[in-house]
Amino acid sequence: MFQYEKALQYPVKIARPNARLAKMIMSQLGGPDGELGASMRYLNQRYTMPLRELQGVLTDIGTEELSHMEMVSALIYQLTKDLTPEQLEAQGFADYFVDHTAGIYPVSASGVPFSAATFQSTGDAITDLHEDLAAEQKARTTYDNILRLADDPDVRDVIRFLREREIVHYQRFGESLRLIQDRLAKYAADPNNPYATNVSFDPMRKPQPRPRR
């Protein structure tokens, strides 16, 4: 069950509207490596993750990504608030304005609507965790690119917070993969070839003695 807390994870208080910047940041809402996809990836993958503590990692990080989605949406909302149609057009927002006015809708910076095809849930713990590690790095790169283009200090402060969280999540997923692999070495049919087993699907064997070298 999810319950709503009426506060952002980290404050968003933008002094100057800037629709051009909003359009770039939009990618972290509805783009291929955005927060919506991140949240859906982890919250869908968690059911078949074989270790309970790793179901916990996916639940906690997936939930945090929902909070990040809300922060990114708050950025877009405040950056496009109280602008006239003329100002929105002058700031390169006309195409979005025609379809969505100043409403929040998940699209990438290049205008492609959000798609579940941007993420996977393979039902294989090793594969999913590698996807998760890659996803955190891709989101980090997107935030780095936004930081290359954004000059508003209020926006940069929030983006830097979000960027740092990608790095922390990457660390936690790395530890998760390590935990799974430690377990695999005990249970896999061939401890030297862990990829021969899908630990999320194949029946677990009794722990096998480690081969002597």
Partner: peptide
């Protein structure tokens, strides 16, 4: 509110760490 957010964030970040430790 900042006090509440600060402690909530610390709790969350430690919870993530505790998931794997």
């Amino acid at each position: 509110l900042r006090q509440v957010q600060m402690h909530q964030f610390s709790m969350h970040d430690l919870a993530l760490y505790l998931d794997t430790h």
